[in-house]
Nucleic acid binder design. Sequence first.
RNA 1: GGCCCCAUAGUCAAGUGGUUAAGACAUCGCCCUUUCACGGCGGGUACAGGAGUUCGAAUCUCCUUGGGGUCACCA
Length: 476
Amino acid sequence: MIRTRFAPSPTGFMHIGNLRTALYAYCFARSQNGKFIIRIEDTDRTRYVEGAIDRIYRTLDACGMKEDESDRIEGACGPYVQSKRGKIYAEYAKKLIELGGAYYCFCDKERLESLTDEIGNRKYDKKCASLSKEEIAKLLRLGIPYVIRQKIPTCGTTLYTDLVFGEIQVDCADLEDNILLKSDGMPTYNFANVVDDHLMGITHVIRGTEYLSSTPKYNLIYKSFGWDIPQYMHLTPIMKNERQKLSKRDGDANFEDFTAKGFLPQAIINYIALLGWSPKNNTEKMSLSELISAFSIDGLSKSSSIFDEAKMKWLNSQYIKELPFDEFNKLAIPYYENSLIASKYNYSMFSSLLQQRIDILSEIPEMVAFIEQFENFDTELFVRQKLKTDKVLAKLVLPKLIDLFKNLDSFEHQSINDSIISLCENIGLKKGQVYWILRIALTGKESTPGGGIEIALLLGKNRSLERLSLSYSLLH
RNA sequence: GGCCCCAUAGUCAAGUGGUUAAGACAUCGCCCUUUCACGGCGGGUACAGGAGUUCGAAUCUCCUUGGGGUCACCA
């Protein structure tokens, strides 16, 4: 049985890169009829952020990824929060010492710092590795603070096969005797991840490449214990540009910032799935369940990829377009409420125009602002080379449009259209020319959520007339 | 700096010794049209550089260059 895990640290918000790691682990497990486990890695209490765990679950829920075991879903391998597993680590650390894979270290901070070299790197010199049993017992009795360090062979190489990168080989001499158990009794990642992955029966470890070259070290621990080593899939980072990882600070890498901006969770999931992985058949728009059935390890990329919000926007627009109208309208309401038209109109009129022409929901306020906002605008907008319209033509047409609107019996789409057509015939202009002038005169905007008639209908007869007159006066 | 890893267009990416080097986003042009948008059609743009191996290399090897990761009582 395949078992994968997502093991985030509750140190802040849910980063897009983390989400993608979770997504791959989830898809891989589901595609193999395996289990997906969530484990909270909170052994560093100084970095703990209140509410971060909730955010992790909230994000996973929003994306539709349901775990099989976690702190909130009972499983056989709990607890699923590392801070609640202190005793387990202590016990296994002792055992590892007995097995010769670790040792007590009593060196204090000052001594450790004295080991720092010119470039600022520091490597422990294994001083305590040669302490005798008696010395150790004595120091322990004296209550000297200690840590437990991994005992790494002084020579030889260690290697493993990563499922995406292939064979990775590292010289033991390049590895350090890392701290496994801190002086506060808590384990470091170096130890906790090994113990937990083993105890939780994880068969495939899926995580970022920052662990690619330290994995041999972890494998040494598995070997000391005589445990089976899991399979590894290391994932390349998502970059902001060629040289920087997606930054946490800018708020552009945060899942909830994206949803607040009006990105749909399924679009986000879909987009990030494609960053670093591609399906065999090249399809791009895929639901979570399609992602699961298409997922395969050999589609994983070895090189890092740059996050491109423009493409995610495009995907988002695809999802928006296919939403049932009522659902779109419902999602759009908060954005209307935050706009100049708040509680003044029947929002669904706008929704029917907007659904086909926005990429993200947050474009809505700007798109509808013209309804309430009509000020002096640049009359150069009347100039449109393709249609051969200009200010002179606008000056000619506007009075006729005003007359036309005044004399309209019924103010609805069909009748407006009919009279505009006959107007065009009378003065020998193309429909497009008149409509362009109408739309600009009504809105003062180059881009609007609808055409001239739609806008006129939204505004109503009186306001349309007001605006036409005002625009006409601007031409003098 | 040592060690590990990576390298196809502006971006994501197919490609695994023989292809006119896919596709998508973006961009540009045209068409449709009641503007923009939507939609349709089309264009330009890529194998980082250099040596090999081979009849033949984006694909294999080496070097160079560029980039990333790592070297914590952080994960």
